[in-house]
Design a protein around this nucleic acid. Structure first.
Length: 647
DNA sequence: CGCGATCGCGCC
DNA sequence: AAAGGGCGCGATCGCG
């Protein structure tokens, strides 16, 4: 019996052992520019673990165990640039070919056995490309998700969990980050321990989840895992022709803006450097600066002030809010123009195309973002490589152009659905009484209803401005913002914001009672934790801190986490429901994106009616509505480009 | 050179 | 009296 599998006989013998059990761990080592991206990475090691056995299967590791010469640098005589001369290793042992390994593992991977990984979305998603895009079927297990549900505040990396639970540090060299730079035996031991420990963790965490009443939310999350695996394969379609046109347009625009900027400033400087911007804006006129008064401290500046250190203009912000305070200053005006174009060009256009030596994010006309179900402590998804949860909205012309890059493939439409005011509805559900709650029951617009009460006018006399102020107010409640934030959001004086907030408190007393009650409940709980609608926990030890500012943060987080976290629960449930319905109907519609309260679906043109119904049913059907005392609404828009789905 | 901190900003 | 909650990413800059 061997742990390191180098022959077909050994592999078949090992597979026979694994086939005796109904669950196993799988862990992969990946290489290549896209090693972190399941759709595009390359697997060079597979490790498996189950009852009584763990194995590693190398299938293309380049190194033996003897390091003959290390990495060195040399100067290229022609270009003068430094080049790396890669390390030389002894030959590795003869390994199985990937095709042999994938064939032998297929009966395990595509069986109803439970496949467990430390990030099932990553490992199982990475396998799909070797099986024609087929993702292994449920059931799954995931020690990352389990660890995160058990404690969202700790580092839930495999190494951290093993160190915490077993006091064993087996990866001081960070082997997994770059396996191809390590000796064969080093990687073999590393991969073996990864799989072995993931197995041990799964066994113990499963019990912990039951004990801590987290089994139900874990089941939901494993449904999410299943859904995310298919979403990653689907991705989002991009109009690459338009993307290249937009790149051209923005590059030219940026050059033109820079020319004007340097002429207005009277000098050339690095526009992306906050330091140089401070010199230009706040420096005295005699040294060629604009001599403007700094207004707002940076975060670093606030820290220095708190520490009672000496402040200079280097501690003041050059952000958009500051620049907008000087509308008549030409330099400020042009800097604002520059910022918008530069942001869109570098983050979105260059980001997707992989300019400046970054990895390209488009594969066969599609972007495959990684939605991370453990990405946010509240329970929300985060999204990366690239982040498609912060694509500009169709507010400005350029913003519209960026969002319009996301399209339906030929013969298809996008179905874009979002919930109306989900967070306020969750809040109203928890209140169970009062104007907000009654308003939602009566089907009136929440911001308008708030404005009517705060300004003491009839519902039909609420102006746009009043509604805007009320909207800011409602955000402030959920986020725990102060009068200054409300004032700047609504474009009114701080004194006015204070007055309005006081009126708000008299008109909506139950909201303030609810907030106080959430905070005091969390503070009294031994774990300083709260539980969301569907049973997710958030632990907030800082709510008992001695420093006032930290305690305040904990209090705002408590209120926000209950609302944001419950909304996250609901969209996860909606996604699982949609995924389940699609599978049951063997429907060709595919979930593409999830953006907190919005789902984007790809649907064949001739099925948009049934597709829209399925989507709507997934988001506001009985099983969802049963969780809330107030009704939910979901709008579905059928369109060709994401930008066409405006509110 | 790589890394982390900082600033700034896109979204809900 | 005063307090924005949650993310990811690009560019710069200082450090080892």
């Amino acid at each position: 019996m061997r742990d390191v599998i180098l022959t077909l006989d050994d592999l078949n013998e090992a597979v026979a052992h694994f086939a005796k059990y109904d669950e196993f761990v799988i862990d992969l080592e990946t290489v290549g520019d896209h090693r972190g991206v399941p759709i595009a990475n390359e697997i060079t090691w597979v490790a498996l673990a189950t009852y009584g056995r763990a194995i590693v299967i190398p299938m293309g590791h380049p190194n033996g165990d003897e390091l003959i010469s290390k990495d060195t640098w040399r100067k290229n005589k022609q270009t003068g640039e430094r080049e790396v001369v890669p390390a030389v290793w002894s030959d590795p042992p003869r390994q199985l070919r990937p095709s042999q390994v994938w064939k032998a593992l297929e009966p395990l991977l595509f069986s109803p056995r439970r496949k467990i990984a430390h990030s099932a979305t990553f490992d199982l998603g990475s396998l799909a490309k070797y099986y024609g895009g087929r993702v292994p079927p449920r059931p799954f297990g995931c020690t990352l998700v389990a660890g995160w549900l058990l404690d969202e505040n700790r580092l839930n990396g495999l190494k951290n969990l093993v160190q915490d639970r077993y006091r064993h540090k087996y990866d001081t060299e960070n082997v997994g980050k770059c396996v191809e730079k390590h000796a064969f035996s080093t990687v073999a031991r590393y991969a073996y321990l990864d799989a072995k420990y993931a197995w041990l963790l799964w066994r113990t965490m499963s019990g912990d989840l039951v004990e801590q009443n987290l089994s139900r939310i874990m089941s939901l999350e494993l449904g999410v895992t299943e859904c995310l695996l298919d979403m990653h394969q689907t991705g989002a379609y991009v109009d690459e022709d338009r993307l290249l046109e937009l790149e051209h347009e923005l590059v030219i625009k940026l050059e033109e803006i820079k020319t004007r900027l340097f002429r207005a400033a009277g000098k050339v400087f690095n526009v992306n450097s906050p330091q140089q911007k401070q010199d230009v804006l706040f420096g005295p006129k005699k040294t060629g600066g604009q001599g403007l008064k700094p207004l707002k401290l940076t975060d670093g500046g606030v820290k220095k002030k708190r520490a009672k250190e000496q402040l200079t203009y280097r501690d003041y912000s050059t952000d958009a809010e500051t620049l907008e305070a000087y509308p008549e200053n030409e330099v400020c005006h042009i800097l604002l123009e520059y910022a918008e174009v530069d942001k869109l060009l570098s983050t979105y256009v260059y980001g997707y195309l992989g300019r400046n030596n970054q990895p390209r994010r488009i594969f066969n006309g599609r972007i495959h973002p990684q939605f991370k179900q453990t990405g946010a402590r509240t329970g929300r998804f985060s999204c990366s490589a690239p982040n498609l949860q912060n694509v500009p909205r169709p507010g400005t012309e350029l913003g519209t152009k960026v969002r319009s890059l996301f399209i339906a493939p030929p013969g298809h439409k996008l179905l874009v659905a979002d919930w109306g005011q989900i967070e306020l509805r969750v809040l109203a559900h928890y209140l169970g009484r009062g104007a907000l709650y009654e308003g939602f029951l009566a089907g009136v617009d929440a911001h308008t209803a708030t404005a009517a009460l705060v300004f003491g006018v009839a519902w039909e006399d609420v102006t746009k401005e009043m509604r805007q102020v009320a909207k800011g107010l409602n955000f402030a409640i959920v986020y725990g913002a102060g009068p200054e934030t409300v004032a700047s959001m609504a474009g009114i004086p701080v004194s006015e914001a204070k007055r309005i907030m006081e009126v708000h408190e008299t008109q909506f007393p139950e909201i303030y009672e609810f907030k106080r009650s959430v905070i005091s409940t969390v503070r009294k709980r031994p774990g300083h934790d709260l539980t969301t609608l569907l049973g997710r926990k958030r632990r907030l030890p800082e709510i008992a801190a001695s420093q006032g500012w930290l305690r305040g943060k904990g209090e705002r987080r408590a209120v926000n986490s209950l609302i944001q976290g419950s909304s996250a629960d609901l969209i996860k449930l909606a996604m699982v429901r949609l995924h389940r319905a699609v599978k049951a109907a063997d429907s060709p519609i595919r979930l593409s994106l999830t953006v907190h309260d919005e789902l984007v679906v790809i649907c064949p043109e001739d099925m948009v009616d049934v597709g829209s119904k399925m989507l709507q049913e997934a988001m506001i059907g009985e099983e969802i509505q049963a969780w809330l005392k107030v009704p939910l609404t979901a709008d579905v828009v059928v369109c060709d480009r994401w930008s066409d789905a405006k509110d």
